[in-house]
Nucleic acid binder design. Structure first.
Length: 149
DNA sequence: CGGATTTGACCCGCGC
DNA sequence: GCGCGGGTCAAATCCG
């Protein structure tokens, strides 16, 4: 949305972001005040999970569009944007807003061809794709994507 | 009001 | 061992 200024200069920064650290995500813990119940924090180890993590499937699609927001049928929440060194354009990171659905989407524009957008999907969705694709264009667009691994 | 989005800072892994 | 790159999170802000 660079078209409009959603973040005016304002006048005052609440405080220096530099040292603004509520608790740095607190060390070890995302559950500081919840230890009362105790529960079983977690079993010793799950070394086997290592392999499971690698099972993450990664699908890359090259779509020819001017917009990065390619709606494939799921709701994505942008959680970050970073510029890569090889590319002149910044890369956008999206995540599926679902409970239990931790699918990640990575959108990157090719500096060579601004019209080409590389979308990389990581993981699989837990819920079905409930997205009414009425526009034929959308279908055609999806058909245009190729290159998967 | 809620959810989505933005931006900055921090973290981790790898390379040299 | 340190630096760079890439990736993620978290708070703040804005839009509907």
């Amino acid at each position: 949305m660079e078209s409009s200024l959603q973040r005016p200069p304002s006048s005052a920064l609440p405080s220096p972001r530099r040292s603004f650290r509520p608790s740095d995500r607190i060390s070890s813990a995302q559950v500081p005040s919840e230890a009362q119940g105790a529960h079983q924090m977690e079993s010793p180890v799950e070394e086997e999970k290592k392999a499971a993590q690698q099972q993450k499937q990664r699908y890359a699609f090259h779509t020819r569009s001017h917009v990065d927001i390619l709606d494939d049928g799921y709701r994505w929440r942008k959680y970050g944007q970073k510029a890569v060194k090889n590319n002149k354009f910044p890369r956008s990171y999206y995540r599926c807003t679902h409970q239990g659905c931790s699918v990640k989407k990575q959108v990157q524009r090719l500096s060579k061809d601004e019209a080409i957008v590389e979308t990389t999907y990581e993981g699989v969705h837990n819920h079905t794709t409930e997205k009414p694709i009425d526009s034929f264009e959308q279908v055609l667009e999806q058909m245009q994507m190729y290159s998967y691994f």
